[in-house]
Simulated assay, not measured.
Amino acid sequence: MKWDPSKYIQFGDYRDRPFFDLTGRIHAEKPHHVVDLGCGPGNLTATLARRWPHAGVLGIDSSPEMLAKAADSRGESHLAFELADIAGWMPSADTDVVVSNAALQWVPGHQDLLARWLEALKPGAWFALQVPGNFNSPSHVLMRELADSPRWTGTLNGVLRGGDSVSEPAEYLTIMLDSGCLAESWETTYQQILTGPDPVLEWVRGTAMRPVLAALTEEDAVAFQTEYAAALRTAYPRSRHGTVFPFRRIFAVARKKT
Rank of each mutant, 00 (worst) to 15 (best):
F247Q: 05
V222M: 11
R116H: 13
S63K: 10
G59H: 00
G133S: 12
A70W: 05
Q111C: 12
V159N: 08
K256R: 11
Q111G: 15
V244N: 06
H33P: 08
D112V: 02
R205H: 06
D21I: 14
P5A: 13
E65W: 05
T174I: 11
F135S: 01
M1P: 12
V159R: 07
T243N: 00
G124K: 14
P197H: 06
G158Q: 11
A120D: 08
A102S: 15
F247P: 03
D94K: 07
D85N: 13
P108A: 07
A87W: 08
E119K: 13
K30Q: 15
D21P: 15
D36T: 12
W203V: 04
W89F: 05
L182Y: 14
A221S: 02
G163D: 15
P5K: 14
A120K: 04
L194E: 01
T189P: 12
T226I: 09
V159Y: 11
A215N: 05
T243Y: 04
M1K: 10
T155P: 09
T258S: 08
Y190S: 10
N43E: 11
T153F: 08
R238G: 02
G163K: 15
A231S: 08
L160A: 04
A128S: 06
M209D: 09
H110E: 06
C39R: 00
P246D: 10
F247A: 05
D36Y: 02
G12M: 11
G242A: 06
V99P: 06
A68K: 10
F135A: 05
K69N: 01
L48G: 01
A84H: 15
Y172K: 12
R240T: 08
Q111I: 14
G242H: 08
A115H: 12
V34R: 01
K7H: 15
L104K: 01
A49E: 02
V34W: 05
L177R: 13
A120C: 09
Y228M: 01
E218C: 03
P150Q: 10
L129I: 10
P5D: 07
G196Y: 04
L216R: 11
G109K: 00
K7M: 14
P41E: 08
K2H: 07
G180H: 12
R238I: 02
I9W: 03
